[in-house]
Design a protein around this nucleic acid. Structure first.
Length: 494
RNA sequence: GCGUGGGUAGUCUAACGGUAGGACUUAGGCCUUCCAAGCCUACGACGCGGGUUCAACUCCCGCCCCACGCACCA
C-alpha cells in the first residue's frame, strides 16, 4: 500500500524520479529520472522488447525523428483532431469546447471550424454559458501538439510528435522492402512523445514529455487469425471490464473464446492474452490489480476501431489507471499517408494486393515504471520495494560484515569478481542492518555478506530481500547462482 | 484554464515582524560476529520576484510549483 506521498518521497530520496528543473521552481508536466529510475525503466524496456518482439521473427525495433512536419501530421489527422477551440465564460470562468457548445445548441456536427467561425455562430445562435448563463468570451485555438519553428525563418511548420506510431507509418514502405516483403511485419519504437496537456497531474501519470513503447503490427486481416490461432489459449481467463462497467472498481475473468463470441477478431484476443501474460507473469502484477478496459465509440480516438485500455490498479493514483492500450487502427494511417503524400502504400503479399491493417500495442513507459513502484512498495517497520528480481535497478550488493580482520579486503575482491557479470553495489558504511535496509528501499533482491567464516573458506551468505533469510554459498558458485536467481531458473530456498 | 488548500535542509516536521529548532537521512570517527543499535563530529532549508517596514520566512501583490475538485485528455 503506497500513498502518493510515500512514492514521491521514496522516489526523490532514492534516485528514481522527481520534478524537472526544480532548481528554478519546477516545470509542470516534466519529470527527470535519477540513476535508479533510469535503471528500472531500462529493465522494463528490455523485458518489453524481449516479450513483444519475441512474438514473431519478423518484428523489429526502429528509431525515427521526434519532430515531424505539418504535412505528415495533417495526413495522420492530428492537426485537425488535436486542435480544439476553447471558449471561456466571461462571468464564471468555465471553459468549454466551442464545437461541443454548438453541437448542444443545434444537434449538428461542427468539426474543423476556425475560432472566428465559432465566435460568429455563438453570436448568431445566442449561445450562453451552460453553467451560469453568462456571456461567452472569444474562442481561442488550443492544440495539444507543441509547435516547432524549423529553419531560420521558422516558417516551415512542424510539431513535436504526439505519438511514436507515426514514425513507424512513415517508414512502412522502406522497412517492408528492407525486410523482404513479408506480413505480418512488426515495427516498434521506444521513444519520446509530447503532448501539451492542459493540466498535468499525478506525477509521472500525465506528463507533457513522456516515453512510449509501441509495436505496430502490419497484417492482412483476411489471414491474420490463421497465423495466430487461439487454440489452447481459448480457455485462458482474461481480466476485463466492459465499457458499461468502466466505473466499477473491479473486473471479471472471461475465457478468451468468449471475447471472440462477443465479436472481437480472434487475432485481437490472441494479443490480449499475450499482453496479459506480460503483466501477470513477467511483471508479476497481482491478478486482481490488472484488467483490460473496453472503450466505447465515444471514448475511442478517431483512428481506432477496437480499443481496450491496459489498466493497473494503483493505490497512489486512486484505483485502476491506464498504462497502455491495444488498438486496432485498421488501414487508417497508411491510407491517410497515401492520400497526403500521393505515394501508394499498398503492397503485394502472396496473391493479394492490399494496404495492410495495423494492430498497435502501445505502452506508457513512465506509467509502467510508476505502477511497478506502486505495486512493489511495502511499508512495515521499514520500506521494501518488492520488485521482480529482473526489474530491480541493482540486482545484488556485497558487504563485509564488519570493517576489520581483513573482511573489507575480502569483500572487495568478491565484489570485483561479481561486477564483471552483474550490476553490483558495494557498501561498508554503517551497520550491516542499515546496509540491508538501504538495499531494500531500492528493491535489490539479493545481498551478499562476507563474514569470518568466509575467510575460513566456508563461502559467503546470500540474503533475500523479501524473506530476510540467508543461505551460505561457496564463492565459486556465487555468480552463477545469482544469475540463475535473477533469471528465474533457480528459486531462493533457505 | 477555474476553484480550494498548500510550499521551511535529501526526507518528515516546529516556531516567530528581530539569532530558523528537532527527528530521520548523508559523510567522517569510535564501537560492533547479521537486519536502520549506541556515542562524538560535520554538511545542509524559509519556491521566485516585487512592495510595506528600522527590520519580512512571517504582512501585502504578482508569478512558479504541488495536491484535490471541475473542465480537458485526440
Amino acid at each position: 500500500m503506497a500513498s502518493y506521498e510515500d512514492l514521491t518521497s521514496l522516489s526523490v530520496r532514492r534516485g528514481f524520479l522527481w520534478p524537472a528543473v526544480d532548481l528554478y521552481g519546477g516545470f509542470a508536466g516534466f519529470y527527470d529520472y535519477g540513476h535508479n529510475g533510469v535503471l528500472l525503466r531500462r529493465r522494463w524496456e528490455d523485458l518489453w522488447i524481449e516479450t513483444f518482439l519475441g512474438l514473431s521473427d519478423n518484428y523489429y525495433l526502429i528509431d525515427t525523428t521526434t519532430i515531424l512536419p505539418e504535412a505528415a501530421l495533417q495526413a495522420s489527422g492530428h492537426v485537425e483532431h488535436f486542435t480544439d477551440i476553447l471558449v471561456t465564460c466571461t462571468r464564471c470562468g468555465e471553459s468549454y469546447r466551442g464545437d461541443h457548445l454548438l453541437e448542444a445548441a443545434t444537434h449538428e456536427e461542427h468539426e474543423g471550424l476556425t475560432a472566428e467561425e465559432i465566435d460568429t455562430r455563438i453570436r448568431d445562435l445566442k449561445v450562453r454559458c451552460p453553467n451560469c448563463g453568462g456571456v461567452l468570451g472569444p474562442g481561442r485555438p488550443f492544440n495539444m501538439m507543441f509547435p516547432v519553428g524549423v529553419g531560420p525563418t521558422g516558417k516551415d511548420h512542424a510539431y513535436l510528435r504526439p505519438e511514436t506510431a507515426q514514425g513507424v507509418f512513415l517508414n512502412f514502405k522502406r522497412e517492408f522492402e528492407a525486410l523482404r516483403r513479408k506480413l505480418p511485419m512488426g515495427l516498434a519504437i521506444v521513444g519520446r512523445a509530447y503532448r501539451n496537456e492542459i493540466s498535468p497531474r499525478q506525477g509521472a501519470y500525465r506528463m507533457r514529455e513522456f516515453l512510449q513503447a509501441e509495436l505496430q503490427i502490419f497484417f492482412d486481416p483476411e489471414t491474420f487469425g490463421d497465423l495466430v490461432p487461439l487454440g489452447e489459449l481459448s480457455s485462458i481467463p482474461v481480466r476485463v471490464a466492459w465499457a458499461d462497467e468502466k466505473n466499477e472498481r473491479g473486473a471479471h475473468d472471461l475465457p478468451a473464446k468468449d471475447f471472440v463470441a462477443r465479436g472481437l477478431p480472434s487475432w485481437y484476443v490472441w494479443h490480449l492474452v499475450q499482453v496479459q501474460r506480460f503483466y501477470l507473469d513477467a511483471l508479476r502484477v497481482p491478478r486482481e490489480a490488472f484488467r483490460f478496459a473496453e472503450l466505447d465509440e465515444k471514448e475511442r480516438a478517431f483512428y481506432n476501431r477496437i480499443h481496450f485500455d491496459i489498466q493497473v490498479r494503483q493505490e497512489s493514483l486512486g484505483g485502476f489507471k491506464e498504462v497502455g492500450g491495444v488498438h486496432y487502427r485498421t488501414d487508417h494511417d497508411l491510407k491517410g499517408h497515401e492520400a497526403g503524400s500521393h505515394v501508394k502504400q499498398s503492397v503485394t503479399f502472396g496473391s493479394r494486393k492490399l494496404v495492410p491493417h495495423v494492430l498497435e500495442l502501445s505502452f506508457g513507459v513512465d506509467r509502467n515504471a510508476w505502477a511497478l513502484l506502486d505495486l512493489s512498495y511495502q511499508k512495515t517497520d521499514r520500506i521494501v520495494l518488492r520488485l521482480p528480481p529482473r526489474l530491480a535497478p541493482v540486482p545484488a550488493a556485497v558487504f563485509p560484515l564488519v570493517n576489520k580482520d581483513g573482511l573489507p579486503e575480502k569483500a572487495e575482491s568478491v565484489y570485483a569478481a561479481l561486477r564483471k557479470r552483474l550490476v553490483v553495489f558495494y557498501d561498508d558504511s554503517g551497520s550491516i542492518g542499515r546496509r540491508y535496509a538501504r538495499m531494500d528501499e531500492i528493491g535489490t533482491p539479493f545481498s551478499v555478506t562476507v563474514d569470518h567464516e568466509t575467510l575460513e573458506g566456508k563461502g559467503v551468505t546470500v540474503r533475500e530481500r523479501d524473506s530476510q533469510k540467508q543461505i551460505r554459498v561457496a564463492e565459486a558458485e556465487l555468480s552463477g547462482l545469482l544469475a540463475r536467481l535473477l533469471s528465474g531458473e533457480a528459486v531462493f530456498a533457505a
